[in-house]
């Protein structure tokens, strides 16, 4: 079966047309978006990308990770540290970053899956690893300790080799990552491995009884998820130019990675994207509103209420509902 057929098989012409239009819009966006709108678009793509990465574990394989900041933080720190100390560019640094994050993921996965920690117990393990890595980085001078690691900002320079440049560069970088992750997830879902993940998510014991190597499949899920999340971390470090253990490995960072796929629809390919649009859009709207009304803290209250309403209104996520409205439902999983 050809890759093309794998990618678009089962999609209606209408769905493909909408997808092509969306892609064209995204490619052309920097030409007509202002600086503010572009920064929002960048944020949306970032959350769509990390959401896609997290969704592989939770949405596909059913393993709840609440410590994904670990992989993003490790990825960011390693690529930024290599660049800062040795001038090694992020294209090379990313490989090291991914390798380290995958190793970390495999350690977490081995402990969790070998000893059959399930559900919230596995989640606690992921939180623990993220937390003690944060404390370790607080004291690691190579990585700047608690004082943080800063990359030099050079105004007006565009250096693709070292990922230095303006918003447009970072927009396209995260767009390529997001599209790549989407394609990868689609190919994975339409493979034996993807189906095995879904089976494990639904019932691991029954899956193993029909020959699914449960442990191995879970390990592959966490490795791929950690690798993608590490790339998001690398991108993040070079976009913001600073890293602090308190934020890079924060619980809040882990939680925000989970929100887009949950709001958009767990286990769906478009869920993380739709969720990222809804969340980022809402976040910006409430920021504006708060500034307008001059009441601090209002943003968080609105944000929390809005999430509550969405979760109650559409417990399976916004995407399945939206897909029905657009007439492009994702095929039977």
């Amino acid at each position: 079966m050809s890759i093309v057929r794998l990618l678009i098989g089962g999609a209606t012409p209408r769905a493909l047309a909408l997808l092509a239009a969306l892609l064209a819009f995204l490619v052309a966006a920097p030409a007509f978006l202002g600086p503010y709108a572009l920064s929002v678009a960048i944020l949306i793509l970032y959350f769509a990308f990390v959401g896609q990465a997290w969704n592989i574990m939770m949405g596909f394989a059913g393993q709840l990770s609440l410590g994904h900041a670990l992989y993003a933080g490790l990825g960011g720190y390693i690529a930024a540290g290599l660049f800062f100390h040795y001038g090694i560019g992020p294209w090379v640094g990313a490989f090291v970053a991914v390798a380290v994050a995958v190793l970390a993921g495999c350690i977490v996965g081995y402990l969790g899956f070998r000893f059959s920690l399930a559900g919230v117990y596995f989640a606690l393990l992921t939180i623990a690893f993220s937390e003690f890595t944060r404390i370790a980085f607080d004291h690691w001078t190579w990585a700047g300790g608690s004082g943080g690691l800063f990359l030099k900002v050079q105004g007006g320079v565009t250096d693709i080799l070292n990922l230095r440049g303006g918003a447009t560069l970072f927009y396209y970088a995260i767009l390529i990552l997001a599209v790549g992750a989407f394609v990868l997830c689609r190919l994975l879902l339409e493979s034996r491995l993807g189906r095995y993940w879904l089976a494990i998510r639904e019932d691991a014991e029954a899956a193993q009884a029909v020959g699914v190597p449960v442990f191995r499949c879970k390990m592959i899920a966490i490795a791929i998820s950690a690798a993608l999340t590490a790339l998001a971390g690398v991108w993040n470090a070079f976009y913001y130019n600073n890293l602090f253990p308190e934020t890079a490995f924060a619980m809040g960072r882990s939680i925000e990675i989970t929100l887009a796929p949950i709001i958009g629809g767990l286990g769906t390919l478009f869920g993380p994207i739709v969720g990222a649009v809804v969340l980022t859009g809402m976040g910006e709207l409430f920021t504006d509103l708060t500034e307008h009304l001059k009441i601090s803290g209002l943003k968080q209250i609105f944000y929390g209420l809005a999430l509550l309403v969405i979760v109650i209104w559409r417990p399976a996520g916004v995407w399945p509902w939206l897909a029905k409205r657009l007439g492009v439902e994702e095929r039977g999983r």
Binding site: E190, L198, E202, V210
Partner: peptide
């Protein structure tokens, strides 16, 4: 122990994938 969230066909397909790696064949 059905895979509740999957269709009936996909439930059985998971079993068939054990001997047939190709999704269409399975």
């Amino acid at each position: 122990k059905p895979f509740k969230g999957l269709s009936v066909l996909e439930n059985v397909t998971v079993g068939a994938l054990h001997r047939h790696a190709d999704l269409e064949t399975a």
